[in-house]
Amino acid sequence: MTGKKPVFNPQILNHPPVEQTGVEERTVRFTKRSIKGPSKMQGLHMVLSMIDLTTLEGKDTPGKVSQLCTKALHLHDQIPGLPTVAAICVYPSMVSIAKKALKGSRINVASVATAFPSGQSSLRIKLADTRLAVEAGADEVDMVISRGKFLAGEYAYVFDEIASVKEACGTARLKVILETGELGTLDQVRKASSIAIAAGADFIKTSTGKIQPAATLPVTLVMLETIREHYHKTGKKVGMKPAGGISKSKLALHYLVMVKETLGDAWLDKHWFRFGASSLANDVLMQVAKETMGNYQSPAYFSID
């Protein structure tokens, strides 16, 4: 661990109120861009390269995880020149299996930790959970914030917790899940984003995928704006990961448009932007196949995930 553990400064919570109507109107604009032909193909390839292929279920087995890893390595071998996904996202107990299956590839293994998905546990347990993932070889850790504490106004607690988990991560990159579906308003989203960024998050992430609504365009825009402001103030980049509910390529392209028009080309890279998704990959592959072969495709010809 390098550097000093950051200290909570309540000043970071001072921001002008978020205007919901304005945010919603702005996000509608992103869905109006016409992306066709070669630009669409480029966009679809980019989406594929940014996916965190995810399986986070109680019924996950070693077999399911290695199947998912095989899928990550061979997205659709009939089409040459496809990128691989960015990472596989699993529970801590599955990290070593994923790590082994992906050996020799450039695909990262991300693990959720800190009593995912509710985060209702003690700091001690959460840190142990994080170490479990990191020691098993996780390259990235997806933690959840304590929404209960956050909503009760204990911002310093939430801040310190994130900072401690960051410390426990060592060299692994930390994604902080805000679970925006439970925060209520865009103002709260903005607050939680500021706290996470100040406490040392490498990425901020919308949702666990277990709560509805998960990622939406307005929520993501507010988070992107927070990242932008932080970048202007400090010159430091923070990544963004919308997760949950993004299962269609068209919507994924809308997200890329939003990133480009909010943060610029520098963020259009898997190092700074990810999609947390399980079924998105197949939809993108079907679109790529449709563009390549010229006819509409059937899910029956794509691997089950």
Binding site: G294, N295, Y296, Q297, S298, A300
Partner: peptide, 8 residues
């Protein structure tokens, strides 16, 4: 053409 070439 679109109907008859649709794989699904």
């Amino acid at each position: 053409d679109w109907i008859s070439s649709h794989v699904d």
